[in-house]
Write a protein that binds this DNA or RNA. Structure first.
Length: 225
DNA sequence: ACGAGGATGCTCT
DNA sequence: GAGCATCCTCGTG
């Protein structure tokens, strides 16, 4: 069961800021999903920020340069909506990834939730991910955590300041030490240090920061460009 | 422990 | 047709 203090949600003002501020601040808060099978939650231990004019961002190139108008087409349009709404999209044709929209309406930005430390609703999580070998692997990745929590396309654009999906106002972990790396799994803007994680937490994802991954590839295949 | 490869569908060229 | 904000399995050491 959740303690009462963790049933109150972060408000919209919290997300009405640049993603690079929201992303580290979310660490230590609970991500909660009140499902019909029970309340499932986990501590946010890893996030990434995506910013306007960021070449790795879905919203890149969507603003028409001379007019400043947003082209009202495609999935990226929802990234310009009001803050604190869910932006959920299909990755590699198979996995739903959960983002929170940041910044005021008209400015694009979001925070990708990359890993949670399971907190409540273990029975539901194990049901959702029956073939997992250990608690560590239950939700230590952006695709894994949506499966564990039962989040998919149907919650796209839902308001994350209220049930059924929200972030707790109170932190479960206080005084978290935030570590910063480049983001994972991207090929553009790989130098931006916009991945945030709780230092030493074993529930963070096993991915390799993109600048390190690129350097390794170059060392291994010096001929490929 | 690690690395290669496949699954699978949407978006943009 | 290429390129993905991924994950899992099955090889080899």
């Amino acid at each position: 069961m959740l303690e009462k203090q963790h049933t109150i949600s972060l408000d919209r003002a919290f997300f009405d800021r640049p993603a690079v501020e929201v992303a580290p601040d979310l660490l230590g808060h609970l991500l909660v999903h009140e499902t019909k099978h029970g309340v499932v939650s986990g501590i946010v231990v890893e996030t990434e920020a995506y910013m306007q004019d960021d070449r790795a961002f879905h919203a890149w190139g969507v603003v028409d340069a001379p007019s400043g108008l947003v082209k009202p087409v495609g999935r990226a349009y929802d990234l310009f909506g009001p803050p604190a709404h869910a932006y959920i999209y299909l990755c590699y044709g198979m996995y739903w990834l959960l983002n929170v929209v940041t910044e005021r309406e008209g400015v694009a930005g979001c925070v990708l939730i990359r890993a949670i430390q399971p907190w409540t609703g273990f029975d539901v999580m194990w049901q959702n991910r029956p073939n997992v070998s250990s608690e560590i692997n239950l939700a230590n990745g952006p695709g894994k955590l949506t499966i564990a929590l039962g989040i998919d396309k149907t919650q796209h654009k839902s308001d994350l300041t209220r049930q059924p999906i929200y972030f707790s106002r109170g932190k479960v972990l206080d005084d978290v030490k935030v570590e910063t790396t480049t983001r994972i799994g991207i090929s553009r803007a790989i130098e931006k240090p916009w991945r945030y994680l709780i230092a030493g937490n074993v529930f963070v994802s096993p991915g390799i920061p993109s600048d390190i991954a690129a350097a390794r590839r170059r060392a291994k295949h010096p001929h490929s460009q």
